[in-house]
Amino acid sequence: MLSTGALRAHLLAARLAGTVATSREESLRSYRLFAARDPRVLLGLEPEWGWGEGDLLRLMAEKCGVSADPAHVSGPDVIDPERTVAALEEFAERLRAAAEVRAPVLFGTGHPHRLLGFYAGLAEAMSAAGCVVLTPARGVHVDMATRFGVRTHTIDYVGRVALVREPGVRQAGSATGAHTHSPLPVRIALGALAEAGGPLPELVVGDHGWVCGAGQLGVEAIGLADTDDPALFVGEAEGRVSVAVPLDDAVRADYYRPLMRYVLDRARLPAGQEWL
Rank of each mutant, 00 (worst) to 15 (best):
G75W: 06
L2V: 13
D254P: 08
L12V: 12
M126Y: 13
A250P: 00
F148V: 11
V73N: 09
F118W: 13
M260Q: 09
Y255D: 13
A244L: 07
I222T: 11
L95S: 02
F34M: 13
T109D: 05
L232V: 10
V219H: 15
E25N: 00
L122N: 05
V169L: 15
E53L: 02
I155S: 08
D249E: 04
T154H: 02
L115R: 02
H72M: 11
L259Q: 09
L269S: 01
L193N: 05
V243K: 01
A68I: 11
T180A: 04
L193S: 09
L203D: 06
E25T: 03
D265V: 07
D38V: 01
R187S: 13
A128T: 10
A221K: 09
E82Q: 07
A6T: 12
A253C: 01
A178E: 13
S182T: 02
V73R: 14
Y256G: 06
L45D: 07
T180N: 05
S174D: 12
V101A: 15
A99K: 08
R138V: 15
C64V: 09
E25W: 05
L269M: 00
W210H: 10
A35K: 00
H72Q: 10
A172H: 13
R268I: 00
C64S: 15
P112I: 11
P183K: 02
L134A: 08
G149Y: 05
A196V: 03
D249I: 12
A129M: 13
G52E: 02
V158W: 12
R83V: 04
T135Q: 15
R83S: 04
G130L: 06
L42V: 06
L12S: 10
G5C: 07
E46I: 13
E25I: 08
A120R: 00
D226C: 04
A36D: 08
L232E: 04
H113D: 10
T109H: 01
A194W: 10
F233R: 04
L217F: 11
A172W: 13
E93L: 02
A103I: 08
P70E: 01
V241R: 00
Y262E: 09
G173N: 01
L57K: 00
V41K: 03
T180F: 11
V158Y: 06
D143W: 14
R266V: 00
R268N: 10
A14S: 12
R29K: 14
L88V: 11
D265R: 01
